[in-house]
């Protein structure tokens, strides 16, 4: 495996330890919460009717504010309905934010204005932690103008250059938002197999260099393993699971010869198997979140969604150390 001296593991006895410590900020995982649900408008009635189903609520703040784009004045606005929804969520359960707009892997620049807006919401709503994706969502597709919003989280090459770029940005995120920050492993329908690092090592090094945690999306991992014919268990073996703070679970759809991370319903069995393993081997895990896309909520039904949450809780109770039982059902 190629290594770069610049990216070697930090020395604890070197005269440059102070400098190295600055380059490897402390990783402080949040207190464990338990089982969570990514809540949208369609799922709010479920949480209000059966609050014991979850220990925390996760939401996507980018979908609530309005962003008129780079350079617009004012750039952001907050429709009263959206602000009220966020406030309601924060009143129900501890709140966790899952961003989709940082585009932390975009080579066109880092949107620090957006980061400032994220910071404002974090302060207002008191997130326990927040997260985004190891990907990019914006790129200049045509000459001139703002980078196009390409929708979805596009793949990065897991190169040292990418690692350096993202590490610097994570430092900025942590400076502006002094709350635990996690980065999620991406679902990549296209992968660049000639990267400098395998993905799990890339993620582990990123966490080690920056102090950020990892949001391990097991369904993304499952999807990638199916579409790119690798063993997800090899990925888990290479991953530093001590950096995993949150797990995402979801279901998907077959689409031709591909499997799509559609957040369309129940988790497939291999995801549950991986969950049991990670629960037993991730000492700093704080939460397991089930995701379902709003358009699939009605078809899946509240009973099935509640069943998925119950399965996650059963796995947590079975595989986590006893003192962490946040709730027993």
């Amino acid at each position: 495996m190629p290594t770069s001296p610049k990216h070697a593991a930090p020395s604890t006895s070197s005269p440059l330890a102070l400098v190295e410590r600055a380059e490897h900020p402390e990783f402080v995982p949040p207190a464990p919460l338990g089982i969570g649900l990514l809540v949208n408008q369609e799922l709010l009635p479920l949480v209000e009717a059966a609050p014991d189903l979850v220990d925390y609520i996760e939401f996507i703040p980018d979908l609530l504010w309005e962003d008129r784009g780079l350079g617009a004045k004012p750039r952001f606005s907050e429709p009263p309905v959206a602000a009220a929804f966020a406030q309601r969520l924060s009143q129900l359960k501890p709140l966790v934010a899952h961003g989709v707009g940082l585009s932390i892997g975009s080579a066109h620049g880092f949107d620090t204005a957006l980061l400032g807006h994220v910071a404002m919401w974090a302060d207002r709503l008191g997130y326990r932690w927040h997260s985004d994706h190891v990907s990019f969502t914006r790129a200049h597709v045509e000459d001139g103008g703002s980078p196009a919003a390409l929708m979805g989280n596009l793949p990065l090459a897991y190169d040292f250059e990418t690692l350096d770029m993202i590490a610097a940005r994570v430092a900025e995120v942590r400076r502006l938002i002094p709350r635990p920050f996690l980065l999620e492993n991406n679902v990549d329908y296209i992968r660049f197999e000639d990267g400098d690092l395998p993905e799990p090592e890339f993620l582990s090094r990123l966490s080690a260099r920056t102090g950020c945690g990892i949001l391990l999306d097991l369904h993304n991992l499952y999807t990638n393993s199916r579409n790119h014919s690798f063993d997800a268990w090899d990925f888990l073996a290479q991953m530093d699971l001590s950096r995993v703070v949150e797990i995402h679970l979801a279901g998907g759809l077959e689409f031709g010869d591909l499997y799509i991370d559609a957040h369309s319903g129940p988790c497939p069995d291999p995801v549950w198997e991986m969950l049991a393993h990670v629960l037993s081997n991730a000492p700093n895990l704080a939460g397991v979140t089930f995701e379902i896309e709003s358009s699939h909520v009605e078809r899946t039904g509240f009973i099935e969604i509640a069943a998925q949450l119950d399965l996650a809780r059963a796995a947590w109770l079975t595989n986590r150390p006893a003192p962490e039982f946040a709730r027993c059902r």
Binding site: A107, A139, H140, V141
Partner: peptide, 16 residues
């Protein structure tokens, strides 16, 4: 490496 141009190419392929 010109990561910026590479991401442009990738994005353009998706959009066009």
């Amino acid at each position: 490496m010109s990561m910026k141009d590479f991401q442009c190419v990738l994005g353009r392929m998706i959009a066009i």
